[in-house]
Design a protein around this nucleic acid. Structure first.
Length: 594
RNA sequence: CGGGGAGUAGCGCAGCUUGGUAGCGCGCUUCGUUCGGGACGAAGAGGUCGGAGGUUCAAAUCCUCUCUCCCCGACCA
């Protein structure tokens, strides 16, 4: 491609509204342009990178038996009503009506359509297992897009769905997809870790998220450097030993104490000069739960130790709630509790679901609120002073907490979720009646798995990792072009143009993707753009070189340059392409499923 | 949805306090000189000042409403 004809624009300065590094670089290098909040257009260079990544996805999906299909973005609401998600999902699901008044949705994912599709085609166990995938647009009306392509509303996703005759077949397939995912990210030059994750509204029994570790990540991960335990904070567990150690302490009499103006845990601990771990934190929530096909709201009173935080995901899952929201002050008072001085002692017990963290049940003599402004109780004991409905692990793991496997301190890190895989089981096949006849001639629901990777987020994550002060440093496997050919010709040096044109033709003939900077610009402009665009191999043709019969080859990722004889230059460039590609593939690893 | 910030040329910004001909840098066009790490000179093009309403002789500037975008949080198959 000739730069003089390319639809692109490099910017010397980043747009003011781009804060995240990858966003700034993608806009400055002319890969994407923002159209609306969380909605982007890809321009030619960005699209080429996207297609490269998607080609890798196709190869890896095909290698494990995947068959590519395409499903619609606009889908009938009826399908979503059948799965129930029409009612479960809120405003993230974009809904519209066609001219005939029929309800439609913009697909935010494709479980409904694929399950319906599979149900229509599959009728026998002989057709299973099967894996179908597509690379298609999704639309999720996110409340807050952010970070350029890190979190958007419209995006392209590679989503795959596998169908099995039984759980054993899915269990056998899962490690294959797990490895395929490592292959995809590895080939894209992105190091990821797989962590256990919440199954969320997808449902299912097992799930992993593939996380690229970066500070701009939206998820918090807990990692153990000793034994390799890794989990999303939403599901991470840890060893709660401290409470057990104090179990020997005897329960002391309940005592009411004046604590004027002390309405936070931090203030309470400093007022009484005790560690936060000797206090109980009250959290008031309202859970939406389905009972007899009806949504019902339930006031939930949660108690965790003062030094710990509630993990809402754990609580939501434990309660099988659809949704949790903070309770309003009026709602809190209505059950007999006092905001800021909340206590399980003396509330209208029948109106609340009382949940305590299991550590609370084992921690004696805590300080808790007295449900009276300016007063607290000392020596509150679970079991003696109040009886919880549930005692289970509902607190969030944090940096330094003991690893659940080996007790070494956990480390926390931020990550971007670039892919995820779920064992769905029969969640969708059951409600949508996607059944087949098994070997015994009985109807059974298909067992499903689903597997997703966002293209744009993956590109952004790669750039987030691979850049320097001058611009992007593409891994050669997904770079928009592999070679950036710089001609330093001027009007007075037509011989340089001639050589550059010849090299351009030779490289193209050799099948090497080359971006030819034939613009009438000064050397500095071209070199700076080359750095910004980050094409892995730069070939420079100038007066000096031409005189000596050489062109200059420089890798974007290194400072050194190499003189290449003009004769046979395509072969030498190809060798460099191969070496750079091999360098990335050498980093691929076999990851056993943990 | 709560909190904070911003909308003036393709990009980055000034002008607004104190109302009076809409500006600067980069980029873009033409010509000339230059030419191996973001050249120089000259001449140009490009604007409903986010939108609507109001105050005023007069509004980018003051008032009201509204839309959009960004950041933090809530949220996030």
């Amino acid at each position: 491609m000739r730069m003089s004809k390319l639809f692109f624009q490099t910017l010397r300065e980043a747009p003011a509204d781009a804060e995240v590094r990858s966003h700034q670089l993608m806009v400055r290098a002319g890969l994407v342009r923002q159209v609306a909040a969380g909605i982007f257009a890809y321009t030619p260079l960005g699209l080429r990178a996207k297609k490269k990544i998607e080609a890798i996805m196709r190869e890896e999906m095909d290698a494990i038996g995947g068959q590519e299909i395409v499903m619609p973005v606009v889908q009938p609401a009826a399908l979503w009503k059948r799965s129930g998600r029409w009612y479960e999902i809120g405003d993230d699901l974009a809904r519209l009506t066609d001219r005939g008044g029929r309800e439609l949705v913009l697909g935010m994912t494709h479980e409904e359509v694929i399950t319906d599709l599979a149900a229509g085609v599959i009728s026998s166990y002989r057709q299973l297992p099967l894996m179908l995938y597509q690379i298609q647009t999704k639309f999720r009306d996110e409340p807050r897009p952010r970070g350029g392509l890190i979190r958007v509303r419209e995006f392209t996703m590679k989503d795959g769905y596998s169908f099995h005759a039984d759980h054993a077949s899915l269990d056998a397939y899962y490690p294959l997809i797990y490895q395929a995912y490592f292959n995809i990210f590895g080939r894209a030059g992105l190091e990821v870790i797989a962590v256990e994750s919440d199954t969320g509204m997808m449902g299912g029994t097992m799930a992993h998220e593939f996380m690229a570790l970066t500070a701009v990540g939206e998820d918090t991960l807990l990692l153990c450097d000793e034994c390799g335990y890794k989990a999303n904070r939403q599901v991470a567990t840890f060893v709660k030993s401290e409470g057990a150690e104090r179990k020997v302490e005897e329960a002391l009499p309940l005592e009411e104490i004046a604590t004027p103006g002390v309405d936070t845990i931090a203030a309470l601990a400093s007022f009484l000069d005790i560690p936060k771990s000797r206090t109980a934190k009250a959290i008031f929530l309202v859970a939406t739960r389905e009972e007899d096909g009806q949504d019902k709201e339930q006031f939930v009173f949660v108690i965790v130790r003062g030094d710990m935080d509630l993990n809402e995901t754990k609580l939501t899952n434990a309660l099988k709630a659809r949704h949790l929201r903070p309770a309003q002050p009026a709602e809190i008072r209505a059950v007999g509790a006092q905001p800021g001085y909340g206590s399980p002692v003396g509330i209208q017990r029948e109106r609340v679901l009382l949940v305590v963290d299991d550590l609370i049940a084992r921690s004696p003599n805590l300080v808790a609120g007295a449900n009276r402004e300016g007063w607290h109780y000392k020596n509150v004991n679970c079991g003696r002073d109040y009886k919880p409905d549930l005692a289970l692990d509902v607190v969030a793991a944090a940096e330094g907490y003991p690893c659940p496997i080996c007790r070494a301190p956990l480390r926390s890190a931020r990550g971007v979720e670039v892919g995820n895989i779920f064992k769905l089981g029969t969640k969708y096949s059951q409600v949508m009646e996607a059944t087949f006849l098994d070997e015994d001639g009985k109807n059974a629901p298909m067992v499903m798995g689903c597997y997703g990777i966002g293209s744009g987020r993956l590109i952004a994550s790669v750039i987030e990792k691979h850049n320097d002060e001058n611009g992007i440093v593409w891994p050669i496997t997904i770079a928009p072009y592999r070679v950036y050919l710089v001609s330093l010709a001027t009007k007075r040096t037509p011989e340089v143009t001639e050589v550059a044109e010849r090299i351009y033709a030779q490289l193209q003939e050799a099948g090497i993707e080359v971006l030819y900077d034939d613009r009438d610009e000064r050397a500095g402009v071209k070199f700076n753009d080359a750095d910004l665009l980050g094409i892995p191999i730069r070939l420079t043709v100038g007066t000096r070189g031409v005189k000596n019969g050489i062109a200059e080859l420089k890798l974007r990722r290194s400072e050194e340059s190499l003189a290449l004889p003009l004769a046979d230059i395509a072969h030498q460039v190809q060798a460099t392409v191969d070496a750079e590609t091999a360098r990335i593939l050498a980093a691929l690893v076999t990851e056993p499923l943990t």
